[in-house]
Deep mutational scan, measured.
Amino acid sequence: MLEGKVKWSNSEKGFGFIEVEGQDDVFVHFSAIQGEGFKTLEEGQAVSFEIVEGNRGPQAANVTKEA
């Protein structure tokens, strides 16, 4: 699992980007967020995730919010 911080997200469009130190930003779709209820990410929020190869390149999977 990698750790990063949410660079920005748009809940209306359903995606955002995660900033990882020393690496390119990672695309995240809201379907990759683990948990119940409305899935949102806040700018600056710490997250853990895996990287998978998506249709348009690397993207985050199994995203969990850190406490």
Rank of each mutant, 00 (worst) to 15 (best):
M1Y: 11
M1W: 11
M1C: 14
M1Q: 10
M1F: 13
L2A: 07
L2V: 12
L2H: 10
E3A: 14
E3D: 09
G4P: 01
G4N: 01
G4Y: 00
G4W: 00
K5C: 13
K5N: 06
K5I: 13
K5E: 04
V6G: 01
V6D: 01
V6F: 03
W8Q: 02
W8M: 05
S9D: 02
S9N: 05
N10P: 02
N10W: 07
S11R: 13
S11E: 10
E12D: 11
E12R: 11
E12N: 10
K13F: 09
K13N: 05
K13V: 06
G14F: 09
G14W: 09
G14T: 13
F15Q: 02
F15T: 01
F15K: 01
F15G: 01
F15A: 02
F17E: 00
F17D: 00
F17S: 01
F17K: 02
I18A: 01
I18N: 00
E19H: 11
E19Q: 13
E19K: 12
V20M: 08
V20G: 02
V20S: 05
V20H: 04
V20L: 09
E21D: 12
E21R: 11
Q23W: 12
Q23N: 09
Q23Y: 14
Q23R: 14
D24A: 14
D24I: 10
D25Q: 02
D25W: 06
D25E: 04
D25K: 02
V26C: 06
V26Y: 03
F27Q: 00
F27H: 02
F27P: 00
V28M: 07
V28P: 06
V28S: 00
V28E: 05
V28W: 15
V28T: 03
H29L: 07
H29W: 10
H29A: 06
F30I: 09
F30Y: 10
F30N: 06
S31I: 04
S31Q: 07
S31L: 06
A32L: 02
A32Y: 06
I33Y: 04
I33T: 04
Q34N: 13
Q34F: 09
G35H: 06
G35V: 06
G35F: 06
E36V: 10
E36D: 12
G37E: 09
G37T: 09
G37H: 08
F38M: 13
F38P: 15
F38W: 12
K39I: 10
L41C: 04
L41W: 03
L41I: 07
L41T: 01
E42Y: 13
E43R: 15
G44Y: 04
Q45C: 11
Q45E: 13
A46Q: 12
A46C: 15
A46L: 15
A46N: 13
A46I: 15
V47N: 00
V47L: 05
S48V: 13
S48Q: 13
S48Y: 14
S48K: 14
S48W: 15
S48E: 06
E50Q: 13
I51G: 02
I51L: 11
I51S: 02
V52W: 07
V52N: 04
E53N: 11
E53A: 11
G54R: 06
G54F: 05
N55R: 15
N55Q: 13
N55G: 11
R56L: 09
R56E: 06
R56P: 05
G57K: 04
G57Y: 04
G57T: 03
G57M: 03
P58K: 11
P58F: 09
P58M: 09
P58S: 07
Q59R: 12
Q59W: 04
Q59I: 10
A60R: 00
A60W: 01
A60C: 04
A61W: 07
A61Q: 09
A61L: 07
A61T: 10
A61S: 09
N62F: 08
V63R: 01
V63Q: 02
T64E: 07
K65H: 09
K65P: 12
K65C: 09
K65D: 03
K65M: 13
E66D: 11
E66H: 15
A67F: 11
A67Y: 11
A67S: 13
A67H: 12
A67M: 12
A67D: 12
